[in-house]
Deep mutational scan, measured.
Amino acid sequence: MATGGRRGAAAAPLLVAVAALLLGAAGHLYPGEVCPGMDIRNNLTRLHELENCSVIEGHLQILLMFKTRPEDFRDLSFPKLIMITDYLLLFRVYGLESLKDLFPNLTVIRGSRLFFNYALVIFEMVHLKELGLYNLMNITRGSVRIEKNNELCYLATIDWSRILDSVEDNYIVLNKDDNEECGDICPGTAKGKTNCPATVINGQFVERCWTHSHCQKVCPTICKSHGCTAEGLCCHSECLGNCSQPDDPTKCVACRNFYLDGRCVETCPPPYYHFQDWRCVNFSFCQDLHHKCKNSRRQGCHQYVIHNNKCIPECPSGYTMNSSNLLCTPCLGPCPKVCHLLEGEKTIDSVTSAQELRGCTVINGSLIINIRGGNNLAAELEANLGLIEEISGYLKIRRSYALVSLSFFRKLRLIRGETLEIGNYSFYALDNQNLRQLWDWSKHNLTITQGKLFFHYNPKLCLSEIHKMEEVSGTKGRQERNDIALKTNGDQASCENELLKFSYIRTSFDKI
Protein backbone atom coordinates (compact mmCIF):
# COMPACT_ATOMS: atom_id res chain seq x y z
CA MET A 1 0.00 0.00 0.00
CA ALA A 2 1.32 3.44 -0.90
CA THR A 3 2.05 5.44 2.22
CA GLY A 4 -0.25 8.40 2.54
CA GLY A 5 -2.61 7.11 -0.16
CA ARG A 6 -6.26 6.15 0.17
CA ARG A 7 -7.56 2.78 -0.97
CA GLY A 8 -10.95 1.40 -1.74
CA ALA A 9 -12.83 4.69 -1.64
CA ALA A 10 -15.23 5.35 -4.46
CA ALA A 11 -13.84 7.94 -6.83
CA ALA A 12 -15.18 9.63 -9.89
CA PRO A 13 -13.70 8.28 -13.13
CA LEU A 14 -10.51 10.06 -14.01
CA LEU A 15 -11.17 12.19 -17.08
CA VAL A 16 -8.15 13.27 -19.05
CA ALA A 17 -8.75 16.65 -20.54
CA VAL A 18 -7.28 17.24 -23.60
CA ALA A 19 3.34 27.69 -27.43
CA ALA A 20 6.77 28.16 -26.99
CA LEU A 21 6.36 31.81 -26.03
CA LEU A 22 9.07 32.51 -23.49
CA LEU A 23 8.01 34.96 -20.82
CA GLY A 24 11.48 35.97 -19.76
CA ALA A 25 14.51 34.50 -18.07
CA ALA A 26 14.10 33.63 -14.42
CA GLY A 27 17.50 34.93 -13.34
CA HIS A 28 20.22 33.55 -11.05
CA LEU A 29 18.00 31.39 -8.83
CA TYR A 30 16.89 29.28 -11.80
CA PRO A 31 19.36 27.97 -14.41
CA GLY A 32 17.04 28.29 -17.40
CA GLU A 33 13.95 30.01 -18.69
CA VAL A 34 10.30 30.43 -17.76
CA CYS A 35 8.19 28.47 -20.25
CA PRO A 36 4.42 28.41 -20.72
CA GLY A 37 2.27 25.41 -19.93
CA MET A 38 2.64 22.55 -22.39
CA ASP A 39 0.46 19.76 -23.73
CA ILE A 40 2.79 17.21 -25.32
CA ARG A 41 1.07 14.29 -27.02
CA ASN A 42 1.31 11.63 -29.75
CA ASN A 43 5.10 11.78 -30.19
CA LEU A 44 8.28 13.05 -28.55
CA THR A 45 8.91 15.95 -30.92
CA ARG A 46 7.62 18.73 -28.66
CA LEU A 47 9.27 17.25 -25.57
CA HIS A 48 12.50 18.93 -26.65
CA GLU A 49 10.86 22.31 -25.98
CA LEU A 50 11.52 21.59 -22.29
CA GLU A 51 15.27 21.64 -22.82
CA ASN A 52 15.96 25.11 -21.39
CA CYS A 53 12.97 25.39 -19.05
CA SER A 54 13.53 25.90 -15.34
CA VAL A 55 9.93 26.82 -14.60
CA ILE A 56 6.77 25.69 -16.38
CA GLU A 57 4.38 28.57 -15.79
CA GLY A 58 1.23 26.51 -16.18
CA HIS A 59 0.71 22.77 -16.42
CA LEU A 60 2.74 20.01 -18.05
CA GLN A 61 0.78 17.21 -19.70
CA ILE A 62 2.55 14.34 -21.46
CA LEU A 63 0.11 11.85 -22.92
CA LEU A 64 -1.09 9.47 -25.62
CA MET A 65 2.21 8.20 -26.99
CA PHE A 66 1.56 4.65 -28.15
CA LYS A 67 4.57 4.04 -30.40
CA THR A 68 7.37 5.11 -28.07
CA ARG A 69 9.81 2.53 -26.70
CA PRO A 70 12.15 2.51 -23.67
CA GLU A 71 15.17 3.30 -25.84
CA ASP A 72 13.46 6.48 -27.06
CA PHE A 73 13.74 7.93 -23.55
CA ARG A 74 17.28 6.86 -22.66
CA ASP A 75 18.98 10.02 -23.89
CA LEU A 76 16.21 12.38 -22.82
CA SER A 77 16.82 14.46 -19.72
CA PHE A 78 15.69 17.90 -18.61
CA PRO A 79 17.80 18.68 -15.54
CA LYS A 80 17.03 22.41 -15.62
CA LEU A 81 13.36 21.91 -14.77
CA ILE A 82 12.87 22.91 -11.13
CA MET A 83 9.23 23.91 -10.76
CA ILE A 84 5.79 23.50 -12.35
CA THR A 85 3.34 26.15 -11.20
CA ASP A 86 0.13 24.18 -11.93
CA TYR A 87 0.14 20.38 -12.26
CA LEU A 88 2.00 17.45 -13.83
CA LEU A 89 -0.02 14.81 -15.68
CA LEU A 90 1.20 11.66 -17.43
CA PHE A 91 -1.23 9.38 -19.26
CA ARG A 92 -0.53 6.41 -21.53
CA VAL A 93 3.04 7.19 -22.48
CA TYR A 94 4.37 3.82 -23.65
CA GLY A 95 7.98 2.84 -23.05
CA LEU A 96 8.58 5.31 -20.20
CA GLU A 97 9.87 3.30 -17.23
CA SER A 98 11.00 6.03 -14.82
CA LEU A 99 11.04 9.80 -14.41
CA LYS A 100 14.41 9.85 -12.65
CA ASP A 101 16.35 10.81 -15.78
CA LEU A 102 13.59 12.81 -17.44
CA PHE A 103 13.07 15.23 -14.51
CA PRO A 104 15.96 14.65 -12.10
CA ASN A 105 15.71 18.08 -10.43
CA LEU A 106 11.97 18.72 -10.32
CA THR A 107 11.55 20.05 -6.79
CA VAL A 108 8.21 21.86 -6.57
CA ILE A 109 4.73 21.47 -8.06
CA ARG A 110 2.80 24.49 -6.81
CA GLY A 111 -0.72 23.45 -7.82
CA SER A 112 -1.89 26.99 -8.51
CA ARG A 113 -4.41 25.43 -10.90
CA LEU A 114 -5.31 21.80 -10.46
CA PHE A 115 -6.49 18.91 -12.59
CA PHE A 116 -9.70 17.86 -10.82
CA ASN A 117 -8.13 18.73 -7.43
CA TYR A 118 -4.87 16.93 -8.26
CA ALA A 119 -1.40 18.41 -8.71
CA LEU A 120 0.28 15.13 -9.71
CA VAL A 121 -1.54 12.60 -11.88
CA ILE A 122 0.03 9.33 -13.07
CA PHE A 123 -2.67 7.35 -14.89
CA GLU A 124 -2.46 4.19 -17.01
CA MET A 125 1.29 4.43 -17.57
CA VAL A 126 1.62 0.82 -18.69
CA HIS A 127 5.43 0.54 -18.57
CA LEU A 128 6.27 2.85 -15.65
CA LYS A 129 8.17 0.89 -12.99
CA GLU A 130 8.98 3.72 -10.56
CA LEU A 131 8.25 7.42 -10.20
CA GLY A 132 11.87 8.35 -9.59
CA LEU A 133 11.18 12.03 -8.80
CA TYR A 134 13.85 11.90 -6.14
CA ASN A 135 14.21 15.67 -5.81
CA LEU A 136 10.48 16.35 -5.46
CA MET A 137 10.16 18.04 -2.08
CA ASN A 138 6.94 20.01 -2.16
CA ILE A 139 3.47 19.89 -3.68
CA THR A 140 2.14 23.18 -2.40
CA ARG A 141 -1.54 22.69 -3.20
CA GLY A 142 -3.62 19.77 -4.40
CA SER A 143 -3.35 16.02 -4.03
CA VAL A 144 -1.77 13.04 -5.78
CA ARG A 145 -3.56 10.55 -8.01
CA ILE A 146 -1.67 7.45 -9.11
CA GLU A 147 -3.95 4.85 -10.68
CA LYS A 148 -3.95 1.83 -13.00
CA ASN A 149 -0.19 1.58 -13.51
CA ASN A 150 0.32 -2.17 -13.72
CA GLU A 151 4.13 -2.13 -13.45
CA LEU A 152 4.54 0.69 -10.93
CA CYS A 153 6.43 -0.03 -7.71
CA TYR A 154 8.25 2.09 -5.11
CA LEU A 155 5.03 3.64 -3.86
CA ALA A 156 4.99 2.22 -0.33
CA THR A 157 8.48 3.64 0.21
CA ILE A 158 7.42 7.25 -0.40
CA ASP A 159 6.32 9.33 2.58
CA TRP A 160 3.90 11.73 0.91
CA SER A 161 3.35 13.58 4.18
CA ARG A 162 6.84 15.02 3.72
CA ILE A 163 5.79 16.46 0.35
CA LEU A 164 2.17 17.54 0.89
CA ASP A 165 0.51 19.31 3.82
CA SER A 166 -2.28 16.73 3.77
CA VAL A 167 -2.40 13.22 2.33
CA GLU A 168 -6.07 12.52 3.05
CA ASP A 169 -7.20 13.18 -0.51
CA ASN A 170 -4.45 11.23 -2.24
CA TYR A 171 -5.83 8.46 -4.43
CA ILE A 172 -3.26 5.74 -5.09
CA VAL A 173 -4.89 2.52 -6.31
CA LEU A 174 -4.69 -0.34 -8.82
CA ASN A 175 -0.93 -0.29 -9.25
CA LYS A 176 1.47 -3.24 -9.14
CA ASP A 177 2.35 -2.15 -5.63
CA ASP A 178 -1.18 -3.16 -4.57
CA ASN A 179 -0.48 -6.83 -5.22
CA GLU A 180 2.60 -6.88 -2.95
CA GLU A 181 4.67 -8.14 -5.87
CA CYS A 182 7.23 -5.35 -5.88
CA GLY A 183 9.83 -6.23 -3.28
CA ASP A 184 11.10 -2.64 -3.20
CA ILE A 185 14.72 -2.41 -2.13
CA CYS A 186 16.09 0.94 -0.98
CA PRO A 187 19.78 1.86 -1.41
CA GLY A 188 22.05 -0.25 0.81
CA THR A 189 19.38 -2.74 1.84
CA ALA A 190 20.80 -5.52 -0.33
CA LYS A 191 24.10 -5.17 1.55
CA GLY A 192 22.45 -5.08 4.95
CA LYS A 193 22.92 -1.34 5.34
CA THR A 194 20.39 1.38 6.10
CA ASN A 195 21.25 4.33 3.90
CA CYS A 196 17.86 6.01 3.64
CA PRO A 197 15.92 7.82 6.37
CA ALA A 198 13.00 5.98 7.91
CA THR A 199 9.70 7.49 9.05
CA VAL A 200 6.60 6.17 10.75
CA ILE A 201 3.18 6.38 9.12
CA ASN A 202 0.19 4.25 10.08
CA GLY A 203 2.37 2.49 12.63
CA GLN A 204 4.91 1.37 10.03
CA PHE A 205 8.57 2.29 10.38
CA VAL A 206 9.78 2.20 6.79
CA GLU A 207 12.85 3.33 4.88
CA ARG A 208 11.98 6.04 2.41
CA CYS A 209 13.26 5.91 -1.16
CA TRP A 210 12.19 6.65 -4.73
CA THR A 211 14.25 3.95 -6.46
CA HIS A 212 16.82 1.31 -5.61
CA SER A 213 19.50 4.01 -5.95
CA HIS A 214 17.75 7.17 -4.68
CA CYS A 215 16.63 7.83 -1.12
CA GLN A 216 13.80 10.19 -0.31
CA LYS A 217 15.21 13.33 1.24
CA VAL A 218 13.70 13.90 4.68
CA CYS A 219 14.47 17.19 6.43
CA PRO A 220 14.19 17.88 10.16
CA THR A 221 10.60 18.67 11.14
CA ILE A 222 11.62 22.14 12.29
CA CYS A 223 12.52 23.03 8.69
CA LYS A 224 8.86 22.63 7.63
CA SER A 225 8.41 23.05 3.86
CA HIS A 226 11.44 25.30 3.49
CA GLY A 227 13.77 22.36 2.93
CA CYS A 228 17.30 21.74 4.11
CA THR A 229 20.84 21.34 2.90
CA ALA A 230 22.52 18.00 2.34
CA GLU A 231 23.84 18.32 5.90
CA GLY A 232 20.31 18.76 7.30
CA LEU A 233 20.55 22.50 8.01
CA CYS A 234 17.30 24.38 7.47
CA CYS A 235 16.89 26.65 4.48
CA HIS A 236 15.80 30.28 4.79
CA SER A 237 12.12 30.79 5.66
CA GLU A 238 11.49 32.17 2.15
CA CYS A 239 12.80 29.00 0.50
CA LEU A 240 10.58 26.20 -0.69
CA GLY A 241 11.71 22.61 -0.97
CA ASN A 242 15.48 22.88 -0.98
CA CYS A 243 18.54 25.12 -0.94
CA SER A 244 22.29 24.97 -1.43
CA GLN A 245 23.16 26.98 1.71
CA PRO A 246 21.24 27.47 4.96
CA ASP A 247 19.43 30.66 5.94
CA ASP A 248 20.17 32.49 2.68
CA PRO A 249 17.25 33.68 0.48
CA THR A 250 19.55 33.81 -2.56
CA LYS A 251 20.45 30.10 -2.29
CA CYS A 252 16.94 28.65 -2.47
CA VAL A 253 16.05 26.14 -5.15
CA ALA A 254 12.53 27.63 -5.28
CA CYS A 255 10.66 30.36 -3.43
CA ARG A 256 7.90 29.95 -0.88
CA ASN A 257 6.35 33.29 -1.85
CA PHE A 258 7.90 35.38 -4.63
CA TYR A 259 11.05 35.48 -6.70
CA LEU A 260 12.77 38.79 -7.47
CA ASP A 261 16.18 39.37 -9.01
CA GLY A 262 17.89 36.24 -7.74
CA ARG A 263 16.38 36.11 -4.27
CA CYS A 264 13.21 34.96 -2.56
CA VAL A 265 11.03 37.65 -0.96
CA GLU A 266 7.86 37.63 1.13
CA THR A 267 6.10 40.16 -1.10
CA CYS A 268 6.94 42.21 -4.17
CA PRO A 269 8.11 45.72 -3.21
CA PRO A 270 7.22 48.78 -5.31
CA PRO A 271 7.55 49.22 -8.24
CA TYR A 272 7.03 45.47 -8.75
CA TYR A 273 3.82 43.46 -9.02
CA HIS A 274 2.87 39.90 -8.10
CA PHE A 275 2.56 37.66 -11.14
CA GLN A 276 1.18 34.10 -11.31
CA ASP A 277 1.54 33.77 -7.52
CA TRP A 278 5.28 33.15 -7.65
CA ARG A 279 7.34 35.98 -9.14
CA CYS A 280 7.66 39.76 -9.25
CA VAL A 281 7.43 41.70 -12.51
CA ASN A 282 7.64 45.39 -13.37
CA PHE A 283 5.06 47.55 -15.12
CA SER A 284 6.74 47.18 -18.51
CA PHE A 285 6.45 43.39 -18.33
CA CYS A 286 2.73 43.56 -17.57
CA GLN A 287 2.22 46.22 -20.23
CA ASP A 288 3.99 44.10 -22.86
CA LEU A 289 1.74 41.15 -22.04
CA HIS A 290 -1.29 43.41 -22.37
CA HIS A 291 -0.26 44.67 -25.80
CA LYS A 292 0.76 41.22 -27.08
CA CYS A 293 -2.74 39.95 -26.48
CA LYS A 294 -4.63 43.10 -27.41
CA ASN A 295 -5.02 42.03 -31.02
CA SER A 296 -4.39 38.33 -30.54
CA ARG A 297 -7.03 35.67 -31.06
CA ARG A 298 -4.96 32.92 -29.46
CA GLN A 299 -6.84 31.01 -26.81
CA GLY A 300 -5.52 31.72 -23.34
CA CYS A 301 -4.04 35.07 -24.32
CA HIS A 302 -5.11 37.76 -21.84
CA GLN A 303 -4.83 41.53 -21.82
CA TYR A 304 -3.17 41.72 -18.42
CA VAL A 305 -4.10 44.52 -16.02
CA ILE A 306 -2.94 45.72 -12.60
CA HIS A 307 -5.04 45.35 -9.46
CA ASN A 308 -4.08 45.25 -5.77
CA ASN A 309 -0.36 45.13 -6.60
CA LYS A 310 -0.87 42.19 -8.94
CA CYS A 311 -0.52 41.76 -12.70
CA ILE A 312 -3.62 39.68 -13.47
CA PRO A 313 -5.45 38.48 -16.64
CA GLU A 314 -8.51 40.72 -16.19
CA CYS A 315 -10.16 43.10 -13.77
CA PRO A 316 -12.37 41.53 -11.09
CA SER A 317 -16.13 41.99 -11.07
CA GLY A 318 -17.12 45.60 -10.43
CA TYR A 319 -13.92 47.05 -11.92
CA THR A 320 -12.87 48.28 -15.32
CA MET A 321 -9.43 49.00 -16.78
CA ASN A 322 -8.02 52.50 -17.05
CA SER A 323 -6.36 52.34 -20.47
CA SER A 324 -3.71 54.93 -19.58
CA ASN A 325 -2.12 52.94 -16.74
CA LEU A 326 -3.76 49.46 -16.89
CA LEU A 327 -5.12 49.95 -13.37
CA CYS A 328 -8.48 48.43 -12.47
CA THR A 329 -10.82 51.16 -11.20
CA PRO A 330 -14.34 50.81 -9.76
CA CYS A 331 -17.10 51.07 -12.36
CA LEU A 332 -19.56 53.94 -12.28
CA GLY A 333 -22.72 52.02 -12.97
CA PRO A 334 -22.64 48.77 -14.99
CA CYS A 335 -19.12 47.69 -15.88
CA PRO A 336 -17.99 47.49 -19.49
CA LYS A 337 -17.09 43.97 -20.54
CA VAL A 338 -14.84 43.32 -23.53
CA CYS A 339 -15.45 39.94 -25.13
CA HIS A 340 -12.67 38.60 -27.36
CA LEU A 341 -13.85 36.21 -30.05
CA LEU A 342 -11.33 33.38 -30.39
CA GLU A 343 -11.49 33.03 -34.17
CA GLY A 344 -12.21 36.69 -34.82
CA GLU A 345 -15.92 36.11 -35.38
CA LYS A 346 -18.90 34.42 -33.80
CA THR A 347 -22.10 33.12 -35.36
CA ILE A 348 -25.28 33.58 -33.35
CA ASP A 349 -27.59 30.83 -34.60
CA SER A 350 -29.56 30.11 -31.43
CA VAL A 351 -30.48 31.51 -28.06
CA THR A 352 -27.78 29.30 -26.55
CA SER A 353 -25.03 30.87 -28.64
CA ALA A 354 -26.38 34.34 -27.82
CA GLN A 355 -26.17 33.53 -24.10
CA GLU A 356 -22.41 33.14 -24.43
CA LEU A 357 -22.19 36.91 -25.02
CA ARG A 358 -24.47 37.89 -22.16
CA GLY A 359 -23.15 41.01 -20.44
CA CYS A 360 -20.68 41.91 -23.21
CA THR A 361 -20.48 45.61 -23.98
CA VAL A 362 -17.61 45.52 -26.48
CA ILE A 363 -17.15 42.76 -29.06
CA ASN A 364 -13.54 42.38 -30.15
CA GLY A 365 -14.30 40.68 -33.46
CA SER A 366 -17.25 40.31 -35.82
CA LEU A 367 -20.80 39.04 -35.30
CA ILE A 368 -22.83 36.96 -37.72
CA ILE A 369 -26.54 36.67 -36.93
CA ASN A 370 -28.12 33.61 -38.55
CA ILE A 371 -31.28 32.80 -36.59
CA ARG A 372 -34.17 30.98 -38.23
CA GLY A 373 -36.47 30.46 -35.27
CA GLY A 374 -36.92 30.26 -31.52
CA ASN A 375 -39.37 30.90 -28.71
CA ASN A 376 -39.69 34.43 -27.33
CA LEU A 377 -36.80 35.30 -29.62
CA ALA A 378 -36.81 39.10 -29.47
CA ALA A 379 -36.77 39.14 -25.67
CA GLU A 380 -34.04 36.49 -25.49
CA LEU A 381 -31.82 38.30 -27.97
CA GLU A 382 -32.23 41.61 -26.17
CA ALA A 383 -31.45 39.99 -22.82
CA ASN A 384 -28.21 38.53 -24.16
CA LEU A 385 -27.06 41.01 -26.83
CA GLY A 386 -28.77 44.17 -25.67
CA LEU A 387 -25.76 45.57 -23.78
CA ILE A 388 -23.39 45.47 -26.76
CA GLU A 389 -22.28 49.01 -27.52
CA GLU A 390 -19.39 48.43 -29.90
CA ILE A 391 -18.26 45.87 -32.48
CA SER A 392 -14.66 46.12 -33.64
CA GLY A 393 -15.21 44.16 -36.86
CA TYR A 394 -18.37 43.83 -38.94
CA LEU A 395 -22.01 42.92 -38.30
CA LYS A 396 -23.59 40.43 -40.68
CA ILE A 397 -27.31 39.55 -40.70
CA ARG A 398 -27.80 36.50 -42.91
CA ARG A 399 -30.86 34.34 -43.57
CA SER A 400 -32.37 35.24 -40.22
CA TYR A 401 -35.96 34.52 -41.12
CA ALA A 402 -37.15 34.99 -37.55
CA LEU A 403 -36.02 38.62 -37.33
CA VAL A 404 -38.41 41.49 -37.92
CA SER A 405 -36.14 44.19 -36.46
CA LEU A 406 -32.63 44.72 -35.11
CA SER A 407 -33.91 46.69 -32.14
CA PHE A 408 -32.63 43.95 -29.80
CA PHE A 409 -29.20 45.58 -30.34
CA ARG A 410 -30.63 48.41 -28.27
CA LYS A 411 -27.29 49.89 -27.17
CA LEU A 412 -25.21 49.34 -30.31
CA ARG A 413 -23.61 52.69 -31.12
CA LEU A 414 -20.40 51.89 -32.98
CA ILE A 415 -19.22 49.46 -35.65
CA ARG A 416 -15.52 50.08 -36.25
CA GLY A 417 -15.04 47.93 -39.33
CA GLU A 418 -11.46 47.01 -38.43
CA THR A 419 -12.24 43.69 -40.13
CA LEU A 420 -14.52 43.78 -43.19
CA GLU A 421 -16.74 41.12 -44.74
CA ILE A 422 -15.37 40.21 -48.20
CA GLY A 423 -12.84 42.98 -47.62
CA ASN A 424 -15.43 45.73 -48.10
CA TYR A 425 -18.44 45.64 -45.82
CA SER A 426 -18.87 46.53 -42.16
CA PHE A 427 -22.65 45.95 -42.23
CA TYR A 428 -23.99 43.11 -44.37
CA ALA A 429 -27.66 42.09 -44.68
CA LEU A 430 -28.49 39.19 -46.99
CA ASP A 431 -31.69 37.20 -47.51
CA ASN A 432 -33.69 38.16 -44.44
CA GLN A 433 -37.24 37.40 -45.55
CA ASN A 434 -39.10 39.10 -42.69
CA LEU A 435 -36.79 41.97 -41.72
CA ARG A 436 -38.91 45.13 -41.80
CA GLN A 437 -37.00 47.57 -39.62
CA LEU A 438 -33.38 48.14 -38.67
CA TRP A 439 -33.73 50.52 -35.73
CA ASP A 440 -36.04 53.34 -34.71
CA TRP A 441 -33.84 56.04 -36.19
CA SER A 442 -35.62 58.78 -34.24
CA LYS A 443 -34.13 57.31 -31.05
CA HIS A 444 -31.08 55.34 -32.16
CA ASN A 445 -27.66 56.63 -33.21
CA LEU A 446 -25.15 54.36 -34.94
CA THR A 447 -21.71 55.25 -36.27
CA ILE A 448 -19.82 53.04 -38.73
CA THR A 449 -16.19 54.14 -38.77
CA GLN A 450 -15.11 52.40 -41.95
CA GLY A 451 -16.45 49.99 -44.51
CA LYS A 452 -19.60 49.95 -46.64
CA LEU A 453 -23.18 48.73 -46.35
CA PHE A 454 -24.52 45.71 -48.23
CA PHE A 455 -28.25 44.97 -48.63
CA HIS A 456 -29.58 42.24 -50.93
CA TYR A 457 -32.71 40.07 -50.87
CA ASN A 458 -34.49 41.66 -47.93
CA PRO A 459 -37.97 41.77 -49.51
CA LYS A 460 -39.80 43.50 -46.65
CA LEU A 461 -37.11 46.08 -45.85
CA CYS A 462 -37.86 49.32 -47.59
CA LEU A 463 -35.13 51.29 -49.33
CA SER A 464 -36.11 54.35 -47.28
CA GLU A 465 -35.08 52.48 -44.13
CA ILE A 466 -31.71 51.65 -45.70
CA HIS A 467 -31.13 55.23 -46.88
CA LYS A 468 -31.92 56.48 -43.39
CA MET A 469 -29.21 54.18 -42.05
CA GLU A 470 -26.74 55.64 -44.56
CA GLU A 471 -27.43 59.13 -43.23
CA VAL A 472 -27.34 58.27 -39.53
CA SER A 473 -24.29 55.98 -39.67
CA GLY A 474 -22.14 58.31 -41.76
CA THR A 475 -21.79 55.88 -44.64
CA LYS A 476 -23.68 57.90 -47.25
CA GLY A 477 -21.57 58.15 -50.38
CA ARG A 478 -19.42 55.11 -49.58
CA GLN A 479 -21.67 52.57 -51.28
CA GLU A 480 -21.30 51.67 -54.93
CA ARG A 481 -24.19 51.01 -57.26
CA ASN A 482 -24.54 47.29 -56.63
CA ASP A 483 -24.06 47.35 -52.85
CA ILE A 484 -27.72 48.15 -52.21
CA ALA A 485 -30.02 46.23 -54.54
CA LEU A 486 -32.93 48.32 -55.79
CA LYS A 487 -35.06 45.38 -56.91
CA THR A 488 -34.65 42.84 -54.08
CA ASN A 489 -35.05 45.10 -51.06
CA GLY A 490 -38.60 46.09 -50.12
CA ASP A 491 -40.10 44.48 -53.21
CA GLN A 492 -42.75 42.72 -51.09
CA ALA A 493 -43.58 45.64 -48.81
CA SER A 494 -45.73 48.75 -49.02
CA CYS A 495 -42.92 51.26 -49.09
CA GLU A 496 -44.34 54.25 -51.01
CA ASN A 497 -47.00 56.39 -49.38
CA GLU A 498 -48.86 58.93 -51.51
CA LEU A 499 -51.64 61.30 -50.49
CA LEU A 500 -54.73 60.67 -52.57
CA LYS A 501 -57.04 63.69 -53.13
CA PHE A 502 -60.72 63.10 -53.82
CA SER A 503 -63.36 65.48 -55.11
CA TYR A 504 -67.00 64.56 -55.20
CA ILE A 505 -70.29 65.79 -56.63
CA ARG A 506 -73.30 65.77 -54.39
CA THR A 507 -76.52 64.72 -56.02
CA SER A 508 -80.10 64.46 -54.87
CA PHE A 509 -83.39 63.43 -56.43
CA ASP A 510 -84.09 66.97 -57.54
CA LYS A 511 -80.54 68.31 -58.07
CA ILE A 512 -77.52 67.38 -60.13
Rank of each mutant, 00 (worst) to 15 (best):
S324G: 12
H236N: 10
R263L: 11
K191R: 12
L89P: 00
Q303V: 10
I185N: 14
P334T: 14
D101E: 14
G95N: 06
L332I: 09
C264G: 00
M38V: 05
I84L: 03
N322Q: 09
L326E: 08
T320C: 09
L63S: 08
C35L: 00
I158C: 03
C315E: 01
H59R: 11
S244T: 03
C234G: 01
V173Y: 02
S213R: 12
D72R: 14
H307T: 03
C234T: 02
F115Y: 09
P316F: 08
V305F: 11
V144K: 00
N295G: 14
Y94F: 11
C315F: 02
D277I: 05
L76K: 15
P316A: 13
T68R: 12
V200R: 10
P197A: 14
K148P: 01
G262P: 06
W278R: 03
E33V: 06
S296R: 08
L332R: 10
N195T: 12
M137V: 09
V206Q: 15
V206Y: 02
C280Q: 01
S98I: 02
V121E: 00
I158Q: 03
G192R: 13
V200K: 02
K176A: 05
L96C: 13
V167D: 03
D178Q: 07
H302N: 13
N117W: 03
K217P: 07
N242A: 09
F91P: 00
K251V: 05
P269C: 01
N105E: 12
K67C: 09
T157M: 04
C182M: 04
Y259V: 05
P79V: 05
N43R: 08
D75K: 13
Q204G: 01
L152S: 02
I306W: 11
H236T: 04
D159C: 03
Y94G: 02
G188M: 03
L44N: 11
P31T: 07
G241Q: 05
Q245L: 08
H212P: 10
K80T: 12
K294P: 12
V34H: 10
C280L: 01
D288A: 10
K217I: 10
C293K: 04
Y304R: 05
E130Q: 13
S225C: 11
C209Q: 01
C286W: 03
L76H: 02
A156T: 05
K217C: 12
F275W: 08
T267A: 14
G183T: 06
F66W: 03
S317F: 14
G227E: 02
S143G: 09
N138D: 05
I84M: 01
C53H: 01
D169A: 04
R297A: 14
P334M: 11
H212R: 11
G203E: 13
P270C: 08
C280W: 00
L88W: 01
E33L: 06
E130A: 08
D288G: 05
F103V: 03
D277G: 12
C35S: 00
C328H: 01
V253D: 02
L63C: 02
C335Y: 03
A156S: 10
H48N: 12
E97A: 07
D169Q: 11
N202D: 11
I84S: 00
L327T: 03
E49Q: 12
G300C: 07
S284V: 09
E151R: 11
E151L: 09
L106K: 00
H226N: 11
C182G: 02
G37N: 15
R110H: 10
I146L: 14
K294N: 01
C35M: 00
L81F: 00
C301Y: 15
R92W: 15
I139K: 00
L152I: 05
N138L: 07
L260A: 12
G132A: 08
G32T: 04
H214A: 15
E180G: 05
H226R: 13
Q276P: 10
G188S: 06
K217F: 12
Q299V: 06
L63I: 02
P336V: 06
S225G: 05
R74L: 03
F123T: 05
L327N: 08
S237I: 09
V121T: 07
G111N: 00
G188V: 07
A156W: 03
P31M: 14
K67M: 12
F66K: 12
L327S: 03
C223S: 03
G132M: 01
T189F: 14
E151K: 09
D165W: 13
N149S: 08
K294A: 15
N295I: 01
I122Y: 00
S77M: 04
P271M: 12
C234Y: 13
C268W: 00
S161E: 10
E51H: 04
I222P: 13
N150R: 07
D159W: 02
V281S: 00
L76V: 13
D159N: 13
I163N: 01
E124K: 06
S98N: 06
C328D: 01
A119L: 00
T45S: 14
H28Q: 07
K310P: 02
Y30D: 05
C209K: 06
N242H: 07
N42G: 14
T45R: 12
T211N: 07
R297H: 15
G37Y: 15
L102Q: 00
G203Q: 07
D178N: 13
L136D: 01
R298V: 04
P70A: 10
C215A: 05
G188T: 05
T250P: 01
C223G: 02
H307D: 15
Y134T: 03
I62C: 01
K129R: 06
D39R: 14
